[in-house]
């Protein structure tokens, strides 16, 4: 009945997005892929090397160690920040003037630039002049995060928990606020204990936001760079050299573009894979 008039002008409307995506994602990624399969000795001369760099990275114990440190770091901070964030969100007032005060206080760490967070904790933890470092040493605890790997890790984790638990709190709080009063009233009438209320009402209703919180915290912590580089610089030794720090050392310190590119891609695939696993596991029994 209606005759279609061919009109290709629509492509013009898509063009800006195509250009944007091309410049901020596809072209840089292609450059990295390009580097990852070639060797260069400078002067813009490249030789094709196939998957040599990938093999090298996958077999290097240096990469394995950095990956293990990274997994350990992410595992620890998730295990602390998610339960702690939920606990704080549960403890926060649900209504009244304290709500906004609490929210602002909680959100504060999120507003501080990452390198400032690193610098703050660096100063705070310095054993001779920092408030935290001096106090710990005055209490008889031998604490020096620039020399002791354990102290460096503890400081790093404390910093991340301080900086990012707020994100989990805010998301969990949003999830809690979305639960209608009728649920609590029904639970009261059904004689449910507060444990049961948490288990059967609050946790299920928070599940979606918690999925987002875990994913965000996983990805961000897995790619963390700024704060640890300012705090410990990856040291002492290589004790806190996480994947991103190692990558920067390879790429910019040693200027090994090929291995660094291969490492970036492997890194990227690990993040993608783990995010996918997290997401699939956490949403697997969701009702459609």
């Amino acid at each position: 009945m209606s005759t279609k008039i061919p009109n290709q002008k629509g492509w013009l409307l898509v063009l800006p997005v195509v250009v944007l995506v091309a410049f901020n994602a596809i072209i840089p990624l292609m450059t990295v892929i390009n580097y990852s399969v070639q060797e260069t000795f400078g002067e813009n001369v490249f030789f094709f090397e196939g998957v040599k760099w990938f093999e090298a990275v996958l077999h290097s114990s240096r990469f394995h160690l950095a990956l293990q440190r990274q997994l350990l770091f992410t595992g620890i901070i998730l295990a602390i920040e998610v339960p702690l964030g939920v606990a704080i969100a549960l403890a926060m007032p649900r209504r009244g003037p304290w709500v906004s005060i609490c929210l602002v206080l909680v959100a504060m760490p999120l507003l501080i630039p990452w390198n400032v967070v690193g610098a703050m904790w660096n100063l705070l933890a310095l054993p001779d002049i920092g408030l935290l470092g001096r106090t710990l040493n005055a209490m008889g605890i031998n604490y020096n995060y620039t020399r002791q790997p354990f102290a460096a890790w503890a400081t790093l984790i404390a910093m991340d928990v301080w900086h990012w638990t707020s994100l989990v709190v805010l998301l969990a709080y949003a999830g809690l606020s979305a639960i209608p009063d009728a649920y609590y009233q029904a639970a009261k009438i059904d004689g449910a204990s507060s444990g049961a209320v948490f288990r059967y009402i609050q946790l299920p209703k928070m599940k979606r936001v918690l999925t987002i919180a875990v994913l965000l915290r996983f990805m961000d912590s897995f790619m963390i760079y700024t704060e640890p580089i300012v705090l410990t610089g990856g040291g002492p030794g290589n004790a806190t050299t996480l994947l991103s720090i190692d990558l920067v050392k390879v790429a910019l310190g040693q200027f090994d573009l090929g291995p660094a590119a291969a490492m970036s891609l492997i890194y990227f695939l690990i993040v993608l894979l783990l995010s996918w696993i997290f997401y699939t596991v956490m949403t697997k029994d969701e009702v459609q």
Binding site: P180, A182, Y183, Q185, A186, I189, D190, G191, Y200, I201
Partner: peptide, 16 residues
Amino acid sequence: PDARNIAQVFQFPVVY
């Protein structure tokens, strides 16, 4: 409420 032994059905269905 739990000591009064009553039941209540709300405007929006409440299920676990």
